[in-house]
């Protein structure tokens, strides 16, 4: 594992003002190293999803800075943030959120097409990713022809197709049974080792969190505990 810090969070605060002031994230400092496989846990409303959305550049903080690969994302334009999301970040959500009008292969191709890559090239790369998640034979199936676990694998392929340096999962197995959950975890772990990508997962599943390199526990928008797992699987 390299010691290079891919994510540096300083004094990050996010306040929602909706009649009453809610400090969803309260002055958080955090460094994440390249290739880490990390879980963010905590009770509902602890701010773990909010923190994830900040790292994912889907939302802007009230104050503080987030440096991705040394670049201050809070100073970026919408266009720059869009490009960063496309090229450096991959998302896996609780629901697969695949586009229902496209088949599995086309869904995996979309991030490449957004980047401006030629269709023929995009297809080649997307097929390779479907191969990696073990769904090459389902390439022309649509979401309604695939099981929950299969759809989530397609979504993972889509998240990874641009070879992002950071992969973000918001309850990636929250909607799956234990068996599927385990196999998705194995897949993510495998990809992490294979490609040295940084994985940040928000999860309720403590048994899954226990298998990661590092567990950050959030309570009331603050880091309550930051523990390194000495024997991750």
């Amino acid at each position: 594992m390299s010691d290079e810090k891919i994510i540096q969070i300083r004094n990050l605060t996010k306040i929602y003002e909706n009649g009453v002031e809610i400090r969803a994230i309260d002055n958080v400092d955090m460094d994440i190293e390249t290739g880490e496989f990390l879980a963010i846990v905590g009770p509902s409303g602890s701010g773990k999803s909010t923190l994830l959305h900040q790292i994912a550049l889907l939302d802007t903080p009230t104050s503080g800075t987030i440096l991705l690969k040394g670049e201050d994302t809070t100073k970026m334009s919408d266009k720059q943030r869009s490009r960063m999301r496309n090229e450096e970040l991959g998302f896996i959500f609780q629901y697969h959120h695949l586009l229902p009008d496209f088949n599995a292969l086309e869904n995996v191709m979309i991030p490449l097409l957004i980047k401006g890559i030629r269709r023929s090239e995009a297809k080649k790369v997307a097929l390779q990713l479907l191969e990696e998640v073990g769904l090459i034979d389902r390439a022309d199936h649509r979401t309604n022809q695939l099981s929950g676990g299969q759809n989530q694998r397609v979504a993972i392929a889509r998240a990874l197709v641009n070879r992002p340096s950071i992969v973000i999962g918001d309850e990636p197995t929250g909607n799956l049974d234990t068996k599927n959950s385990d196999s998705i975890y194995e897949l993510l772990r495998h990809l992490n080792r294979e490609h040295k990508q940084t994985f940040i997962l928000v999860t309720h599943d403590l048994s899954m969190a226990a298998k990661t390199d590092r567990i950050i526990t959030l309570v009331d928008g603050k880091i309550a505990e930051d523990s390194r797992n000495v024997s991750p699987t």
Binding site: D78, S82, P111, I114
Partner: peptide
Amino acid sequence: VAEIGILLAMGTSRRS
């Protein structure tokens, strides 16, 4: 709506 959100998350610009 969700699809638009995902497209934005995947780096589609608002202009697109």
